[in-house]
Design a protein around this nucleic acid. Structure first.
Lengths: 330, 330
DNA sequence: GTGAAAGCGCTAACAT
DNA sequence: ATGTTAGCGCTTTCAC
């Protein structure tokens, strides 16, 4: 159906090899006569030739494609990350294969299988965790498959994750300055405790400052965050300041408060995490502990390409600082 | 590096062909002995075999991959559509290759090239328009490449788009009932007039009802929508009711109003379009003219697979009704 | 029931 | 400067 280099070769009267050489102009050896080069280029254009990705990948044993695994692209933070990842991959000469897990352990494995079967050159993994003991994990380990985790560190893989300390301590100090001695934290308990960098940083800080911290579990869905908002709203000892695990969930949470007639920040001050663009456009504009998404992505891709070029490069771990962005919700 | 069927074949003591036959179990002719089948399956599992997508694609001339082109996955409406598209493609046995154009004409062509070169079995196109006269357009037309447009109809391709009449007329009646005789509409004038289904429907309805309609141009970015909000806020003849082209832009627009000290809906009533989930979680919850995303996607994929199976199937056009969702912003 | 062989579209030595 | 020749990993027809 589609045009192949053989079609071009036939029409020009050379072999596929010559055509291939011309089409991959970058080759240092520019050993093709100006004349045939022109002819080939002309015919290619005339025939609307488009190279076959599969054929190229198969022949060169490299796909120039990177896998990117996230939990949910509807959550603004992950939409931003994905968006950046596409841009940055592109600008490095790679395609991005986006794979979403809906935070399901099962789908996570399916996504990995899919990426492995596409023979992507490397994987940036930002869903829950790569589970040891699974077939996919074994394959990845055995082949020293290039993988970079983001979100949570893991000694088995290179990783880039936010350093929550600066942002969290700015937040705690800021709240303290406003007289806050008691703080609620809404979070997804399904995240493995060791990997819950936000919660751990916050816990430590509150202890140090002598701030009472109450934690409330929440599924990672906006609807459940709303439920939690409604429930906290009607408690007699309702917290006056709450930090929510993400801007996305904060959104649901605030809707829950709103439904129960509470105003933000008058009745309850709410702070999110991630510093999404969306937070800036929320009403009231969301105070948030911001991650540096762009830096996370550029670092992740740099790390990954380092491994792509040299499978035995050391597995590095990069931490990217966070910072408090004060707006109006807290 | 990765395991191939030859590895399996060698280890079991059969040929690649047999292995292939077993691994593609679905073949009606189950002509392989229970015994070798078991052995092959066992060895495959033991070796952590993962088929090579490129090799399969090349050999069977089909990729089981669909392209999905959108302008921007950070806008909630498109994030929802993309999310659904992934789910629905998956459930039909296809992969989805997501491609974002950032609403740039140039990137749009690059995306198409990329999809063509991946030899996707079909393309769902939801960015601006497929520009006649371009190489990509020619290729697609010449090969009768399966393409479904969504968002705007185009006689050249199958398409699915929202029927804005029901939603818009519900909206107009609703506003009329609240005494509104003058309506502002904020929209992106870069959309080709003929393709601007929302604006056209609205214009007609307002004429019929004798409602004065003022239109304000806006780039399709949230920051520009904010600018428009700020500008309208300070006009002496500030509109009291404004409809914005999308929930996403409405968000920016309302932030602009907010910055100028206006409250919604008290000072200005704002209505969005698209009926995104995000709108429901906004404060105030956003009144919006909702598209039925799920139906748009399932219809688009059905239409597309129809064409994939039969390149000469008629190019059908499906319209999906919209409806007003009244919440609090208007 | 299983093997042999051709071929998908392209790349990359190696010849010429 | 260009052609020849093997593959890359898999599917598929046709023999045996």
């Amino acid at each position: 159906m589609a045009i192949t280099i053989s079609d071009i070769a036939d029409k020009v009267g050379v072999t596929k090899a010559t055509v291939s050489l011309v089409l991959n102009k970058n080759r240092s050896k520019v050993r093709i006569s100006k004349d045939t080069r022109r002819k080939i280029l002309d015919v290619a254009r005339e025939l609307n030739y488009v190279p076959s990705f599969s054929a190229q990948a198969l022949a060169r044993g490299k796909t120039y494609t990177l896998g990117f695994v996230v939990g949910d692209i509807q959550a603004p933070h992950f939409a931003e990350l994905s968006s950046f990842a596409m841009e940055e991959a592109e600008s490095r000469g790679y395609h991005l294969l986006l794979s979403v897990t809906k935070w399901s352990y099962e789908k996570e494995l399916e996504c990995l299988d899919m990426l492995l079967c596409h023979r992507v050159d490397g994987i940036v993994f930002g869903s829950m965790a790569l589970q040891p003991g699974t077939r996919q994990f074994e394959t990845i380990q055995a082949q020293r498959y290039p993988v970079v985790l983001f979100g949570s560190p893991d000694p088995n893989f290179a990783s880039v994750h936010s350093d929550w300390n600066p942002g969290m301590s700015q937040a705690v100090e800021y709240l303290e300055g406003k007289g806050c001695r008691r703080l609620a934290y809404v979070f997804d308990p399904a995240v493995m405790p060791a990997a819950d960098l936000k919660k751990n940083a916050l816990t430590l800080l509150c202890e140090k400052k002598g701030i009472a911290l109450e934690c409330f579990g929440c599924l990672p869905t906006i609807t459940d965050a709303r439920r939690v908002g409604e429930e906290l709203a009607v408690r007699p000892d309702r917290p006056k300041v709450v930090l929510v695990q993400s801007d996305y969930l904060a959104t649901g949470f605030m809707r829950g408060l709103h439904d129960k007639g509470l105003a933000i920040p008058r009745d309850v001050a709410v702070m999110g995490c991630d510093g999404t663009q969306m937070g800036e456009y929320y009403l009231p504009p969301l105070t948030s502990i911001a991650q540096d998404c762009r830096s996370i992505i550029t670092n992740a891709l740099d790390l990954l390409l380092e491994l792509v070029e040299n499978k035995d490069a050391p597995r590095r771990h990069i931490r990217v600082p966070t910072r408090l962005i004060v707006r109006s919700s807290a």
